[in-house]
């Protein structure tokens, strides 16, 4: 077993363990922490496949931003685990069917010829920057799907804002924009008074 294979199995073991802990741990914060570990290890495996841009991007986007917000929300939850587990046996058949369906679908997709690692030619020559290659592909061949994806994201963002926006508040909110531009002469009046003498 060469070193790369060893690293692959090591990372895969951590990944599977972390993924299992995400769904089995009782404390939601632990679940999120293990999800972060899973993303991190996933990045490691991608780096092993010479996809350094994807490896860094998953850490930058998911670990660095998305999971921070996730953790932010989960920390404030007050979850009663016993109540969550009440209907476990009722939902089990439906969940199991969905799970099996997903496994079958993934098996079908991964069995396709596009997902087979070509025996030779998979190793990139040194000096080929995979970040540059991805950028060139994204903005030439795949520019329409890429722009479409960004519009879908924008729509999602606008929808989230519309759903949560409840109009301007009638409270004593301060407006920092106005505050910053306040000048002393708008607020203070200096009076000149003659000195009183008796």
């Amino acid at each position: 077993m060469d070193f790369q294979t060893f690293v692959f199995f090591f990372l895969s073991a951590i990944l599977i363990f972390a993924a299992l802990r995400v769904i089995t741990s009782r404390n939601p914060v632990y679940a999120v922490l293990h999800l972060i570990l899973a993303f991190f290890t996933c990045g490691g495996i991608w780096a092993l496949l010479q996809a350094e841009f994807l490896a860094i991007a998953i850490i930058l986007v998911y670990v660095g931003a998305v999971m921070v917000l996730f953790l932010f929300v989960v920390m404030m939850l007050d979850i009663n685990v016993d109540r969550l587990r009440e209907g476990f046996w009722n939902y089990l058949p439906l969940g199991a069917i969905l799970g099996i369906l997903m496994v079958v679908e993934m098996g079908l997709v991964l069995g396709q010829k596009y997902f087979q690692v070509p025996a030779a030619g998979a190793v990139l020559p040194a000096g080929v920057s995979n970040t540059r290659e991805i950028a060139v592909e994204m903005f030439t061949n795949f520019v329409y799907p890429f722009e479409l994806a960004s519009i879908v994201l924008l729509v999602g963002m606008v929808a989230a804002i519309v759903l949560t926006y409840r109009g301007p508040k009638a409270s004593k909110n301060t407006n920092p924009n106005k505050q910053v531009f306040v000048k002393a002469k708008d607020r203070v009046r200096v009076l000149q008074m003659p000195v009183e003498k008796d």
Partner: peptide
């Protein structure tokens, strides 16, 4: 001297926030 060192720096420094959040929690 890796190709994507700037990206690496951005990714690694963005992890630093976990120490602070988790210590607070």
């Amino acid at each position: 001297n890796i190709d994507a060192s700037l990206l690496y720096i951005m990714a690694i420094t963005s992890i630093g926030v976990y120490g602070i959040i988790l210590s607070g929690w």
